[in-house]
Design a protein around this nucleic acid. Structure first.
Lengths: 204, 204
DNA sequence: CACAAAAACAGAATTGACTCAATTTTAGAA
DNA sequence: TTCTAAAATTGAGTCAATTCTGTTTTTGTG
């Protein structure tokens, strides 16, 4: 399964992603022309379209890497959460937010979000929805964990709370990436303030 | 101030919007070519771009009308809310959701949302953000009203609750328009389930 | 009523994402 | 090794949004 063809394919995938990531950062998503990506990756335009259905899917591949890293980092918190509800939520959400601008600029996030709503059935659109769902599930898992250790009341509708927290955080994050001057600490503080209401409602 | 030029301008605006609205509905946003809109509105392509910066702004004008109607309808609920917190929220949110597909198809909503995150500084992007804020303020006004009539505890952080409710609703609405088969009653039920947690936390 | 400046219009030209038919490369059978 | 079919690559061509430049219309003034 590791013939010449397979290796070349993997190599081209990597070269395209690397070229695109560099150009997206330098010139922005719109500014990064497919022709430039092709030249830098040393493939032809047609080859890019053989690997990715459209320009958005290239960005999608980068977003997926970022979010998967975030999900991984979040596992630790779910397994071993801080000993009170507010801190547990803040820690998990903090990981999401602090990680978010590692590989992706705000402009790249804006484009990624836009494409995912514009073309929800494209490969990237579906992948993005799946990532959102995975993040929701992780927050739900945290709530469930907190219920196990009696920090959250057992009679609380955990899945609904988890979704509510994710939706609010996600919307706040969308507004955050829409304003270039918005700062991470302010975003976190605003979300904490909102979550405080829920923490009061669900905590033991 | 009402010379020939002014009248012609207003008339052309109207014709462009009407042509665009019809074509967006018939052919979808992507399917409605600028050339076709120009022909149907009996102006040239150049004139369209004299009136609107880009295709998205035309859609934006239509979205603005829709949301402004919704805001208007919401005022009645805020002035005279049902006598319990859950119903009050459900009624206001119900108005938003039930109205939402009057003039705009899901596909048009998807495009509008996408453009507003993609180009937050374009005329439409800014207008859309302002509309979101107006909706948030209306929900906050409802909470404030409910605090006045003692249905919501006075020590609750009203603005934070309002934003939390709006953000959650908006995110649910985004997911709703992303799936063509999603149904309004299911959307409303899901939001009610989420709000129930908050209602428990803030009600007297 | 003429006329000059300002505003608006028209549509051909440009630009860039994406397609597709022709060509090249690879895998694997004989 | 040689040959053939399948897979992959290529880049010129297509299509539609947007720009640009010359032309026309409107306005206000003498």
């Amino acid at each position: 399964m590791s013939g010449l063809r397979e290796r070349q394919k993997a190599d081209r995938h990597r070269r395209i992603i690397e070229a695109a990531a560099a150009l997206f950062r330098e010139a922005g998503y719109e500014g990064a022309k497919i022709e430039a990506i092709a030249t830098q990756a040393e493939v032809s335009i047609g080859t890019i379209y053989n690997y990715y259905q459209n320009k958005g899917d290239i960005l999608g591949a980068i977003v997926s890497m970022e979010v998967n890293e975030v999900l991984n980092a979040g596992r630790g918190v779910v397994a071993n959460p801080p000993a009170n509800v507010g801190d547990a939520l803040d820690t998990l959400i903090g990981i999401y937010i602090e990680h978010s601008l590692h590989y992706l600029s705000k402009e790249m996030w804006r484009q990624a979000m836009a494409i995912s709503t514009q073309l929800p059935d494209s490969p990237f659109g579906q992948a993005y929805t799946a990532l959102d769902r995975a993040l929701t599930e992780q927050i739900r898992a945290l709530i469930a964990r907190l219920q196990e250790i009696r920090l959250v009341r057992a009679d609380i509708d955990g899945p609904a709370v988890g979704e509510l927290i994710f939706n609010n955080m996600n919307m706040m994050f969308i507004e955050f990436v829409k304003r270039d001057e918005a700062k991470i600490p302010d975003l976190r503080a605003a979300i904490r303030r909102q979550n405080r209401i829920l923490v009061g409602a669900i905590g033991t």
